[in-house]
Amino acid sequence: QVNIAPGSLDKALNQYAAHSGFTLSVDASLTRGKQSNGLHGDYDVESGLQQLLDGSGLQVKPLGNNSWTLEP
């Protein structure tokens, strides 16, 4: 069960990665100043990332080996 409060997208993504045990490689300029609506409930990694990114204009991309990145 994930419980991440709304706020900074950077912070939300870092909390989610730490909670879910995956690696997220992101260029900080992509997420700077963006906000997230947070995340509450049970999600697989990709669904949770998509939910956190909702409205940010960013997309999640798998890199393999439980690693992910973001792209515009």
Results as ranks from 00 to 15, higher is better:
G33T: 04
L52K: 00
D42I: 15
D42C: 15
Q15L: 12
A5E: 12
A17P: 00
S25A: 11
D10L: 14
L58G: 02
T69A: 12
S67W: 11
L63T: 11
K34H: 08
H40L: 11
L70Q: 02
S36I: 03
N14C: 15
T31Y: 05
K34S: 02
G33C: 14
A17G: 04
P6K: 09
H19G: 07
S25G: 04
E46M: 14
K61H: 07
S67I: 14
L52T: 01
D27W: 07
V26Q: 03
P72C: 13
L49A: 02
T31K: 00
P72Q: 09
G7N: 08
G38F: 02
L52F: 01
Q35N: 11
N65E: 09
S67V: 14
F22V: 08
Q59D: 08
G21E: 06
F22N: 01
Q35L: 14
G55I: 04
L13K: 02
H40Y: 13
N66D: 07
L70A: 06
L49K: 00
S47Q: 11
D42G: 07
L13V: 03
A18C: 12
I4S: 00
L24K: 02
T31S: 03
S56M: 08
T23L: 11
E46L: 15
N65T: 08
S20E: 11
Q50R: 15
K11P: 02
Q50E: 10
Y43M: 07
G7I: 05
G33I: 01
P6C: 10
P62G: 09
D10C: 14
H40S: 12
G57S: 04
G64P: 06
H40C: 14
V26M: 11
G38S: 01
L9T: 00
L39E: 01
L13I: 06
P62A: 14
D44Y: 04
A28W: 14
S29K: 12
N37L: 12
P72G: 07
L70H: 03
L52H: 00
A5T: 07
Y16M: 01
V26R: 03
D10K: 07
Q59C: 14
G38K: 02
L24I: 13
L49W: 06
S56Y: 05
E71P: 01
A5F: 09
E46V: 13
V2N: 03
D54H: 14
D44S: 11
Q50K: 14
Q1E: 11
A28Y: 10
S20D: 04
W68P: 01
G48I: 05
Q35E: 09
N66W: 06
H40N: 12
D54Q: 15
Q51A: 14
G55Y: 04
L58M: 04
A12G: 03
H19N: 09
P72S: 09
L30Y: 07
N14Q: 15
L49Q: 02
L58D: 00
L9H: 02
N14D: 11
E46Q: 13
A17Y: 03
S67G: 08
E71D: 05
K11M: 13
S25T: 13
S25K: 12
V45F: 12
L24D: 01
G7Q: 11
S8W: 12
Q51C: 13
P6T: 05
A18Y: 09
L49N: 00
T31D: 04
Q35A: 08
Y43V: 06
L49S: 00
L63S: 08
D27L: 08
W68L: 04
S47G: 09
N37S: 10
L9E: 04
K61A: 06
S47L: 08
L24G: 04
R32P: 03
L9Y: 02
S20Y: 15
L58P: 01
S36L: 04
G64Q: 05
G64A: 06
L13H: 02
A12F: 06
I4P: 00
Q15V: 07
S29L: 10
G64T: 05
D10Q: 13
S25H: 14
